[in-house]
Simulated scan of single mutants.
Amino acid sequence: MDKPIFIFVESNTSGTGRLFIETAKLLDFEPVLLCKNADIYDFPEYVKKHSYVVDTSDLSQLISLCKTLEQSRDIAGVFSSSEYYISIAAQLAQRLGKYSGNAKHIQNTRSKLFQRTQLEQHGLNPKYAIARSVEEAVRHAQTIGFPVVVKPIHGSGSVGVRMCNCPLDVIEHSKHLLSKIDEDNTILVEEMVSGQEYSVEMFNGEVIGITKKYVGDPPFFVEIGHEFPADISTDNYQRIVNAAHTAVRELGLTWGPIHVELRLASLRPVIMEVNPRLAGDMIPVLIQQAYGIDLIEATIQLAAGRSVRITKTHDRVAAIRFFMPKSSGIFHGMNNWSFDKWKDTIVRFEITKKPGSKIDLHGDFTDRVGYVICVAETSKDIHRVIEEICSSVQINMQ
């Protein structure tokens, strides 16, 4: 008997996207990718042979294709590991009678402006304003007070998010954003919140743990590393968890994976954004290494209507650091990356750019050329190993 198929509507182009495909196969499903262009995915040939080209922004086309597939195969579930397609994947799942989060709530949450409106009464927002013109953005920035953060109301991976220190910075960046926006014609101007950044990883409304985030130099906010679980006090843990619970309750997010990003500013949690999806940047791998909890498997099982039990089996600390070149140029590889000294600590090391690739720095996740994941018994141990590895690696750019 043929295996049931599991539908993925597009995917992350690497990292957890590939892990979702591999995990679905291990669960005895046949993963099928619905996409606009299969060539953009660095996946095994198996996946390219099991993909269908369709306009993945058109729900009617997706439904029609899935109805055709259902004539010969059972569809176990529908999901997307891509930030940009989680909403339409939820709509498709509901139309096919499959399990998913509430499609309306997911779509609403995709808007950072909607999030700000819903969380306003709880004191979880930074100062903010919406702008539909460059002049309006400058006026709001001056009212809020510099520095400010100017960003799109939709997006992912810190794309288009920039700190602005003066009116000229706001003019330049808001003009850039407004020239690219094809929906709402709206951007956000927000207070620059100082304080350590964290994210809360949740599943079915329950907290799995808190991730400590390491962010690159301003004016950009590219994430250069993560540590799970974060080494924080009991009081701060409770403050952060309470804020996350309030946010997801107000946004109506109760199903599946949720990723809440925030900063702790003078003991006050300030929500950066709430994502109705699993964390990216290989954070699920950190959780699996640290706690023995496979959230990718749990998500697929949940979408397939199977019972899911989250059980912690380890109590370790895992961390990832991304390798970031300091300047644009041609990437020629990385030196000193044979880490025999740390072979018992390194879980994974990967170079994500091919030698000869042209790297144009944008101040977001696309700047990364590789990463290393390590696991240790304590936060102190993981810091020592990660720092030694990162200081030994040389990124060869010309």
Rank of each mutant, 00 (worst) to 15 (best):
V200Y: 07
V200L: 04
V200R: 04
E201T: 08
M202R: 13
F203G: 05
N204K: 08
N204F: 15
G205I: 01
E206D: 14
E206K: 15
V207S: 05
I208K: 01
G209N: 10
I210R: 03
T211V: 12
K213L: 15
K213P: 08
K213E: 07
Y214D: 07
V215K: 15
G216N: 14
P219E: 11
F220L: 06
F221M: 08
V222Y: 12
V222T: 14
V222H: 14
E223A: 00
G225L: 00
H226W: 11
E227K: 07
E227P: 01
P229V: 13
D231W: 01
D231S: 12
D231G: 06
I232S: 09
I232R: 03
I232L: 09
S233P: 12
S233Q: 13
T234Q: 14
T234P: 12
D235M: 15
N236C: 08
Y237P: 01
Q238S: 10
R239W: 00
I240L: 01
V241F: 09
V241C: 13
N242Q: 14
A243N: 12
A243G: 14
A243T: 06
A243S: 14
A244S: 11
A244K: 09
H245F: 04
T246W: 08
A247W: 07
A247T: 02
A247F: 05
V248G: 02
V248N: 10
V248Q: 03
R249K: 15
R249H: 13
R249Y: 09
E250G: 02
G252Q: 05
W255R: 15
W255K: 15
G256F: 03
P257R: 02
V260Y: 11
V260D: 01
E261W: 03
L262T: 03
R263Q: 01
L264N: 07
L264D: 09
L264Y: 13
A265G: 12
S266C: 11
P269C: 11
P269Y: 07
V270F: 02
V270W: 02
I271A: 04
I271T: 02
I271E: 06
